[in-house]
Amino acid sequence: MSLLSIKGLTKDFKALRALDDLSLEVQRNEVYGFIGRNGAGKTTTINIIMGLLHGDGGEIYLDGEPVDMHDINHRRRIGYVPDVPAFPRYLKAREFLRFACEAHEIDPTQHEARIETVLRDVGLEAGDRKIGTFSRGMKQRLAIAQALVHKPELLIMDEPTSALDPIGRKDVLDIIARLKNTMTVFYSTHILDDAQKVCDRIGLIDRGKLLLEASVASIMRRDKTFRYYVEAENDADDVLKKLKAIDLVREAFIEAHGITFEVASQEALKDVVRTLVDADVSMTTLTRKAKTLEDVFIEVLDENHA
């Protein structure tokens, strides 16, 4: 049975339909990437799960139990990291974590040990500093810490890396990677590279509808394109002209220091390479370009908007 199940969720903001019959399934102990452009409906979905917004239709189930906005019990099993976490500036990190412990009714004798553990897990050493002095990255770590302090079964993260610099992003992704297999992570993002790094499965949402739900591995396996990148000692424009002259080449364009081109099959590549060699192109690099999640994302969106 899925840990989180959403069936036919609908939400309207006046004339705008934010969620349109959205259904998805999150399996236990997986990292589920909830992917979509800004405004696709990711945050709205999460806000409804967390009881911060009303859904206009549909149901949400946690471990088979229906989730109701007024029922606080399901929140005991969920940890939540908002997209831009805002904390009371006058509190110290440790004080906010103590508040989180109390809110989750954790035995007071365990508070300090739990706080130490989560601070260590997220790599936040400034537990005794006022949150008002924290950088954005430190606030994000604290947001993760407060979401983990009660050892939730489901961790919901709403774009946790979108506002961070590359180092902060990497740190957050490392934390998610460490959590893998210890709990279920529902991770919303529009940064496809991040999703590809840490997610087991993804759900692709656009205009409030789920367009695709599949494992990252199966998406990558479905890659039937033969796209290659070539670099040569010759002038890139000259090589591009020669590639475009070959019938077997479907598409070619200059990228970085070389040319990316696509052919119909592996066999066709051999003929293309032979033709280039015959045309005095001295290749220094030839690599296959695997399809990225970004390519899939664009393909699926194109298909649905066609």
Binding site: L52, I72, N73, R75, P82, A86, P88, A103, H104
Partner: peptide
């Protein structure tokens, strides 16, 4: 107004 509400009401508080 300060944006604390999501963090507070995502916890089991009535």
């Amino acid at each position: 107004t300060a944006g604390h509400a999501p963090l507070i009401f995502s916890k089991p508080l009535r």
